[in-house]
């Protein structure tokens, strides 16, 4: 099986998701977060990953799911995209699995909401479904545009 068909799986709010293993730099335990004021809600904050500052995205909030229960620490799935590091905060990291097209299906019409935008397709695993996330879309929607440049001049 070629390596590029490997997927890192993780669980967010009971649902199994996967991202291509080639996009994942590493999986780490929880790091202390520094909150970023004015950032979009899905940006949980910044973490220190061995001296690099990494933006952490709370996947529960990104997928517009229920907030993580108090006291439950998320795990980091760190993605490297064109030298930019982004960490996805997930509930639990699963195994690395190899998949091929035989189990793949495009996004069903019944999938609603934000997930529909972020999910590339679905793999039918023997016992559960794996939603294949498009990392670029997960990240793209978050970039902060020029905003609120001047209070004195709100019309601009």
């Amino acid at each position: 099986m070629p390596a590029n068909n490997n997927f890192i799986t993780f669980v967010v709010d009971g649902q199994l998701f996967g991202v291509p293993a080639t996009e994942v730099m590493e999986l780490t335990r929880f790091h202390e977060l520094t909150r970023v004021p004015l950032a979009p809600p899905a940006v949980a904050g910044l973490i220190n990953l061995r001296g690099q500052v990494v933006t952490a995205v709370d996947m529960r909030r990104r997928l517009e799911l229920r907030p993580r229960p108090e006291g439950q620490q998320p795990m980091n799935v760190v993605l490297r995209r064109e030298d930019v590091l982004v960490s996805l905060l997930v509930d639990q990291v699963g195994e690395v699995i190899a998949l091929d097209d035989s189990t793949f299906e495009p996004v069903p019409d019944t999938l609603r909401g934000i997930a529909r935008e972020l999910v590339r397709g679905i793999h039918k695993l023997p016992c559960r479904l794996l939603l294949l996330l498009d990392p670029s879309k997960v990240i793209a929607g978050l970039a902060v545009g020029p905003r609120r440049q001047s209070l004195a001049n709100p019309a601009v």
């Binding site: 970023v36 910044l46 973490i47 220190n48 500052v53 902060v144 905003r147």
Partner: peptide, 25 residues
């Protein structure tokens, strides 16, 4: 650098890592 995601927030010039290992803006 704060990373491309947060470049659009004019309030921050970047981030740094404190003595205790946490990140500060």
């Amino acid at each position: 650098p704060v990373g491309a995601l947060l470049k659009g927030i004019p309030a921050f010039a970047g981030a740094t890592i404190l003595g205790n290992g946490s990140v500060a803006l």
